[in-house]
């Protein structure tokens, strides 16, 4: 399903990078501010889907040249991996590590929690599911 409207096409070019960037931001800052894996994933999937509507299936394929199920498996694997690692270290399942580290060229300490890796897995799954379902149904329509 493609909507051939020049306005939409051209504005999408501008909107898409910003939306994707915001999705990443929402995911990464999600531990402290509104956001997180679910939200970031939904924003990301919505952006991709609107892009598909304006530019067509092949453009989407060029932007994201993998089948969405790859994202799903990657995400699930990442989430499961982060939850299993504490087990290998003799800690309870899913225990997260919290700490700070200093990035080079930055005086501000970077606060991290290992739960964020888990969140990244969640995001990948949500993106895969959202994009995958819309893509599948659109293909049926075409």
């Amino acid at each position: 399903m493609t909507i051939s409207s020049p306005v939409l096409r051209n504005s999408m070019r501008l909107i898409l990078p910003i939306t994707l960037l915001y999705a990443m931001y929402a995911m990464l800052k999600g531990h402290h501010e509104p956001g997180g894996g679910f939200i970031g994933g939904m924003i990301f999937a919505t952006a991709i889907c609107t892009y598909r509507m304006s530019h067509g299936a092949l453009a989407q394929l060029r932007l994201m040249p993998v089948h969405p199920r790859v994202l799903i498996f990657l995400g699930l694997g990442l989430a499961l991996g982060t939850s299993v690692i504490p087990l290998l270290l003799g800690e309870p399942f899913l225990r997260s590590a919290v700490g700070e580290f200093h990035l080079p060229f930055s005086s501000h300490p970077f606060h991290y929690a290992s739960a964020m890796a888990f969140d990244l897995g969640v995001m990948l799954v949500v993106v895969g599911v959202g994009v995958g379902m819309i893509t599948q149904l659109s293909e049926e329509l075409e």
């Binding site: 679910f38 939200i39 994933g41 949500v126 599911v129 379902m133 599948q136 149904l137 049926e140």
Partner: peptide
């Protein structure tokens, strides 16, 4: 609710596919 919304989306999509 946050998880319920996302799960709801997946269930919805599955239901609609079945409908088709």
């Amino acid at each position: 609710i946050l998880t319920a919304i996302v799960i709801g989306f997946a269930v919805m999509a599955f239901l609609l596919s079945l409908l088709v």
